[in-house]
């Protein structure tokens, strides 16, 4: 099946436009942040913490009042609209690639990275619509724009059919599930990283300029947890599908191929995260660090295993 070059070209243009629009959206989000005033209160406040225990704890740092003017809010909303536009262009890029090549549009590393980012942004927009966390958007878009930039430059691969090993309906099932779950798991990774700053700020006032504008540590923690409990089972499903595919493609369902090993490691790290959150003394900072490690292992799996080691999963298509 030949490739439709025209559609492939439109896909590429769409991709570039999406990245540009994302960057613009980030600019608007940043303006909103800059216009959000934080006022320090020297007075120490009593705040109730912990699971409902009425015990009051003194917060040593100056507490800060965050006020958002209507103008700032307008910039935020404009950023959000641009963000939606970006995601539409991004989706168009992915879909056009699929139509141009007449297959699922995630058959090599460029396409896969693009799909992961798309699902991450879609997931984010859904969350930001439901909860009051829009001001985190710029921190979510940052890694996405970096990934898309790398994808569009260093990893770019022209539209083409995939090799025989990938011609299977499992490509649609396995890789779709992996890319949705990886995309979703990016969000807790970002939230956990921000959690560390915010928690330090709440503990002793460090990183005030930046962390004062973030949502409360508790909100970030909950965000990370709630997205992880959706992303993790999906990731599990994706690995099981990978194993089923491997059984029919490579002759065994599990063989400790580097990508399999790394998927296993990421899976175990997320399992540690879930257990840590249920264990006294591991909640909070430690759990957040584990979640970040989990996401780091996913990124490692994508870049290091695809580009540096060689294994059966080596159809990244990067010359």
């Amino acid at each position: 099946m030949p490739v439709n070059e025209t559609l492939a070209r439109y896909s590429d243009w769409s991709y570039v436009s999406a990245v540009v629009v994302y960057v613009l959206a980030m600019v608007f989000y940043l303006v909103e942040q800059a216009m959000t005033k934080t006022r320090r209160q020297a007075a120490r406040e009593l705040t109730a913490v912990g699971g409902g225990s009425a015990e009051a704890v003194e917060v040593p740092a100056e507490s800060v009042v965050v006020t958002r003017s209507p103008r700032a809010d307008r910039f935020g909303r404009m950023g959000f609209s641009l963000n939606v536009l970006g995601v539409l262009l991004h989706a168009a890029a992915v879909i056009l690639r699929g139509v141009a090549t007449d297959r699922v549009p995630w058959g090599n590393m460029y396409e896969y990275g693009s799909a992961v980012c798309l699902f991450a942004v879609v997931g984010w927009l859904v969350l930001a619509k439901r909860f009051d966390i829009r001001r985190l958007s710029v921190w979510v878009l940052l890694p996405i724009v970096v990934l898309l930039f790398l994808g569009g430059t260093a990893l770019y691969t022209p539209a083409a059919p995939v090799q025989p090993a990938l011609q299977s309906y499992w490509l649609a099932i396995h890789v779709t599930a992996v890319s949705i779950s990886s995309g979703l798991l990016l969000l807790p990774g970002v939230a956990s990283l921000l959690y560390l700053f915010r928690a330090a700020y709440e503990r002793n006032g460090r990183f005030a300029g930046f962390a004062a504008r973030l949502p409360k540590a508790e909100v970030l923690d909950r965000l990370a947890y709630r997205v992880t409990v959706v992303g993790f089972p999906l990731f599990t499903f994706a690995i099981i599908c990978g194993a089923i595919w491997a059984e029919s493609a490579w002759g065994r369902f599990w063989g400790w191929d580097p990508k399999e090993t790394c998927a296993f490691i990421a899976w175990v790290i997320y399992a540690v995260y879930l257990h840590a959150r249920a264990t006294a003394g591991w909640r909070g900072n430690r759990a957040a660090v584990i979640n970040i490690l989990g996401f780091a292992s996913m990124v490692f799996n994508l870049f290091f295993i695809n580009l540096v080691t060689s294994g059966l999963h080596s159809y990244a298509g990067v010359a």
Binding site: W256, P258, T261, C262, F264, I265, V268, I269, A271, V272, H275, S297, I305, T309
Partner: peptide, 13 residues
């Protein structure tokens, strides 16, 4: 569990 993840790592590298 953490050791399991760590122990599996050399196998990928």
């Amino acid at each position: 569990l953490a050791l399991l993840a760590l122990g599996a790592l050399p196998g990928a590298l």
